[in-house]
């Protein structure tokens, strides 16, 4: 139901990651209002408290600002988006290398495979 979540990490961390991806990809732009807690909880099929927790964490990181009456807004400049994009891509690349290392490929082989992939 709702979004797909992986089993081994807390849901709120996965929500944070999904929301960050939405911001970087431009689904939510600076000044856009984020969905209300209940609405996002309903859409994702998760507990409203979990959404609350993810929003709070995004606020703490300065990506989201909450206005008392009108909800939560994305508050981020282009420079910060770049940083965020780099953060996320670093995570994915680190993940990729780790997984391929586990398959027994060394870093050089991985680089070769990657450049071949791009050419195709």
């Amino acid at each position: 139901m709702g979004w797909k979540f992986s089993e081994d990490t807390p849901i709120y961390l996965q929500l944070i990651e999904a929301l960050k991806t939405d911001i970087v990809s431009g689904k939510y732009r600076s000044g856009d209002r984020l969905p209300a807690v209940r609405d996002l909880a309903f859409e994702a099929g998760v507990n409203p408290n979990t959404v609350q927790r993810a929003y709070a964490e995004l606020e703490r990181q300065g990506l989201v600002q909450s206005e008392r009456t009108s909800g939560r807004f994305v508050s981020i400049d282009d420079k910060k988006i770049e940083e965020l994009r780099k953060d996320l891509s670093d995570t994915y690349i680190r993940d990729l290398f780790k997984k391929l290392n586990d398959l027994g490929m060394d870093d050089k082989t991985i680089r070769d495979v990657l450049s071949k992939w791009r050419d195709e």
């Binding site: 089993e7 081994d8 990490t9 807390p10 849901i11 709120y12 979990t50 927790r53």
Partner: peptide, 15 residues
């Protein structure tokens, strides 16, 4: 808490 459980065990509640 479910978050804590996933954090400490690295498993879903179901697992």
């Amino acid at each position: 808490s479910v978050d804590e459980l996933r954090d400490t065990t690295g498993k879903s509640v179901d697992e």
